[in-house]
Simulated assay, not measured.
Amino acid sequence: MAQIISTDASSLQQAANALSQGKLVALPTETVYGLAADATNGRAVAGIFSAKGRPHFNPLIAHVANIDMAARYVQFDEVSRRLAEKFWPGPLTLVLPLREGAEIHPLVTAGLTTLAVRMPRGPVAGIIAALDRPLAAPSANSSGRISATSAQAVQDDLGGKLDLIVDGGACVVGLESTIVKIDNGQALLLRPGGLAAEEIEAFIGQPLHRLDQRAAIQAPGMMASHYAPDAAMRLNVSEVHEGEALLAFGGQRVAGADKAVAVLNLSPSGDLQEAAVHLFDYMKRLDAVGATTIAVESVPHQGLGEAINDRLARAAAPRE
């Protein structure tokens, strides 16, 4: 199993040393735990795909320490730079054109001419700055399965496939980053996430256009089936069937809730931020009770609800 270390200075240096040697390290961010490797090291990046069982056509996010580091590898348009200046560090990923000669391994981009970049909060930023090169870091879980929001969740899933796990406690956002691309002046929402689309739209003064579900993959998190537990998922239920677990939301329960084999409430008060923090952890915990199906009460679609419903829909999609 992987060694779990803390976030003190000597531990972070240990993590940086391991990454510089091409090893895999799970790192805490404000969104979810990431499975990190040097984005310029092809052998190390290949290790991410192998450990996760991730399809090679699914690109990765490159995590940077600051805007200047990002600008060494990608070309910023005016709107994207404003977004980075406003929302970095934070749960926003920008898809931007690769600079010619950028030393990012092609596995990271899955052959695309663009690169998804993000500046995370937390101790990972210091590690990236010490390395002075980006880290490729998708969520630290087996491909298509529930994202990890704690060090123990990483250990339970991938502990035998990586070297170190840096334990930064529970993730404070709990959902992967929002992914945005500016294409010929039009703002595209490639993946809803931990930064509400409405907040981005208010800042840039234009709508975020949603892509058709059948659109070609341009960024991580766009596969139809993703974030899935072993149990089937049944969404927006009006009643709970016998033998089902219930993922609840708000103060009112659906019919038959008292018969559920287990119940966890994303937010009894109906707070979408609280629900986002709990989503993956509660899905994992309900999956562990052994129910064949997890019934899910309706969650509003506004604000962070868009990202929550996106993850639920992908978790409930037919398995590939």
Rank of each mutant, 00 (worst) to 15 (best):
Q152T: 12
Q152Y: 03
A153G: 10
A153Y: 03
Q155L: 15
D156N: 15
G159T: 09
G159A: 08
G159L: 10
G160H: 04
G160K: 06
L162R: 05
G169F: 13
G169I: 09
A170L: 10
A170M: 11
V173C: 13
L175S: 03
I179T: 15
N184L: 10
G185A: 10
Q186S: 10
Q186V: 14
A187M: 07
A187N: 02
A187P: 01
L188N: 06
L190C: 07
L190P: 08
L190H: 02
R191Y: 03
R191W: 02
P192W: 01
P192T: 13
G193F: 04
G194K: 03
L195M: 05
A197I: 09
A197P: 01
E198I: 08
E199M: 07
I200T: 03
F203H: 15
F203K: 09
F203I: 04
I204S: 08
P207K: 11
P207N: 10
L208Y: 05
H209V: 14
D212V: 01
Q213P: 15
A215E: 12
A216I: 13
I217K: 05
I217E: 09
Q218Y: 03
A219P: 10
P220A: 07
P220Q: 09
M223S: 12
M223L: 15
M223F: 12
A224C: 06
S225F: 02
H226N: 12
H226G: 09
Y227M: 11
Y227D: 12
A231R: 02
N236Y: 08
N236I: 01
